[in-house]
Nucleic acid binder design. Structure first.
Length: 493
RNA sequence: GGCGGCGUGGCCAAGUGGACUAAGGCGCUGGUUUGCAAAACCAAUAUUCAUGGGUUCGAAUCCCAUCGCCGCCUCCA
């Protein structure tokens, strides 16, 4: 069975067929770097991270480009207001490019923490000003754009397909009262390709139309074309970018090149916080660093980044997701359950009796993988994909409880955990920080002493003393687990 | 006003015409284990899929209506 993806352009789930056999070109709208990453970024980039990982898992050679927007978008709408980066930079008393640098680093850090694979290319908008100017020139030459008072606008009337992605028509939009009217534009729907800069505008470049800066849709068209070609397989982004951003990208690119810009348009849905829209202007967004540190008024604790990732994977990428403390706690519990099972499994491998893979288990693992593949092939049903991981957890725990599984069997299970849970879903790690021996040898000795004391107390039926030791360690985040046969293991919580 | 989505157990969430007497997670309850816990395992937890009609041999899944919620249309992932 082949991969199927929901294509916003056709509003249908379609079988995915790349332009070139075995290769996929994919562009995802990246962040505007004027603040730390937040939950919305997490949802979006984890969603597309899954797309990339799954495509690679099923054998495609993927070229993944995700831009960094470090200029140009305005605080208000396409034609008014200030450059968001400039506003933030002014507030922090640093140069806009220093601000962009800082938040770009922060963004990469957060995405690494969420275990998102790095894009192959992360092009910056400011690094592609000449290319953007070239595209504007091309559009003017071909009659799709016009200059007015040092700015250049795309002439929507020359591109009848405008609206095909978002299902809008120009008449309806003209009837709407919310479109800002500019004297320079022939039609209120025309959008800026290049904006004339006032003298006090920090970020500005020379152009054939005087000093200015690029319009806010231009960079994606240009960088997509430059690194992936005139027609690409997949373009992803948040659903709110469907209109106008992606609509404008299509207009610019297809007008300039005369060929289809993108085969498959993928859009992820939005995030709400406690049932309410999370928006920049609402100022209710939870930034990722605060989330990982538990440093937010609505959060009772910190959350493991991969538990956040798991929460996102529990629902479909095209569904909205609500973040709440309760939801995060539930996801964290589930994540811990998987992690504990995998750690226990890997520990057990060392002491397991030699032997090959149990035939029945091998068969079950095969069925599990098939179920996983089928779910993911249906427009990336990560919720079912995750449920498969939980089936493996159950299988693992049952086998470990039985204590008779061979090394070969356990290794086979671990391999599948690494493949499906690790390579594809990104929630199972290759290595976990040593929870007992190894690096923490000293800690292990010390806790071992406590465990021995507790054991002695228990032997004397001094349960008050033994429970006090357990409680005290729990207070430090150390959980004791009594095993059958009087053994006691410890792990961090 | 235009466009789109959603409403499934206490919570989250998959399923979108027939193996659904509805996956999975969290939670709760009972059991095994334990001195007691924790962890793990086993069992139980929706005769029902917002409501009312309709189509069909058959609907959570299709159609219509009603109610409720949400998003986009302005920067946002």
């Amino acid at each position: 069975m082949a991969l199927k993806l929901y294509n916003t352009l056709s509003r249908k789930v379609e079988e995915f067929k790349p332009l070139v056999d075995g290769k996929v070109s994919m562009y995802v709208c990246g962040p505007t770097v004027y603040g730390h990453g937040h939950l919305g970024h997490a949802k979006s980039y984890i969603s597309f991270d899954i797309v990339v990982r799954y495509l690679r898992y099923i054998g495609y050679n993927v070229m993944y480009v995700q831009n960094i927007t470090d200029v140009g978008h305005l605080t208000d709408d396409a034609d008014e207001g200030e450059d968001k980066l400039a506003v933030a930079a002014k507030k922090e008393h640093i140069h806009p490019m220093a601000l962009a640098e800082m938040y770009t680093a922060s963004f990469f850090e957060d995405m690494d923490t969420l275990n998102c694979v790095r894009p192959d290319i992360s092009p910056r908008a400011t690094g592609h000003i000449p290319e953007q100017i070239e595209l504007v020139e091309t559009l003017i030459e071909k009659g799709y754009a016009y200059e007015a008072n040092g700015s250049v606008y795309f002439d929507i009337s020359k591109f009848p397909e405008y609206g095909k992605l978002s299902g809008r028509n120009i008449e309806d939009m003209l009837a709407g009262a919310r479109i800002a009217v500019s004297q320079e534009k022939k039609s209120p729907c025309d959008f800026a390709l290049w904006k004339k800069a006032e003298a006090n505008h920090i970020m500005q470049w020379n152009s054939p139309w005087g000093k200015g800066y690029p319009g806010w849709h231009l960079e994606c068209s240009v960088m997509s074309m430059k690194y992936l070609g005139k027609t690409i397989d997949i373009h992803g982004g948040g659903i709110e970018n469907q209109f106008p951003h992606h609509e404008c990208e299509i207009a610019q690119s297809e007008a300039a090149n005369g060929v289809q810009f993108v085969k498959y348009w993928l859009h992820n849905n939005m995030v709400t916080v406690n049932g309410q829209k999370m928006g920049k202007s609402l100022n209710n967004f939870i930034n990722l660093k605060a989330l990982f540190a538990g440093d937010h008024e609505t959060l009772s604790r910190s959350y493991d980044p991969l538990a956040v990732r798991q929460l996102i994977l529990q629902s479909h990428y095209r569904s909205p997701i609500d973040f709440s403390d309760a939801g995060l706690t539930a996801a964290q519990s589930g994540y811990d359950k998987i992690t504990d099972a995998v750690i226990a499994l890997r520990k057990a491998i060392a002491n397991a009796p030699d032997g090959g893979v149990d035939a029945k288990i091998a068969e079950e693992l095969e069925a599990i993988k098939t179920k996983f593949d089928n779910a993911m092939n249906e427009d990336l049903n990560t919720a079912v994909g995750l449920s498969v991981i939980f089936e493996m957890v159950k299988m693992t725990n049952a086998l470990l409880d039985g204590g008779k599984a061979t090394k070969g069997t356990l290794v086979a299970i671990d391999s599948l955990f690494r493949l499906l849970g690790g390579d594809v879903l990104g929630i199972v790690k290759d290595e976990y920080a040593a929870a007992s021996a190894g690096d923490d040898e000293l800690l292990d000795h010390l806790i071992g002493m406590m465990i021995q004391q507790r054991k002695d107390a228990k032997a004397n039926k001094d349960y008050a003393a033994s429970d006090a030791i357990r409680d005290k360690l729990a207070g430090f985040g150390i959980l004791l687990e009594d095993k059958p046969g009087g053994e006691c293991a410890w792990r961090r919580k």
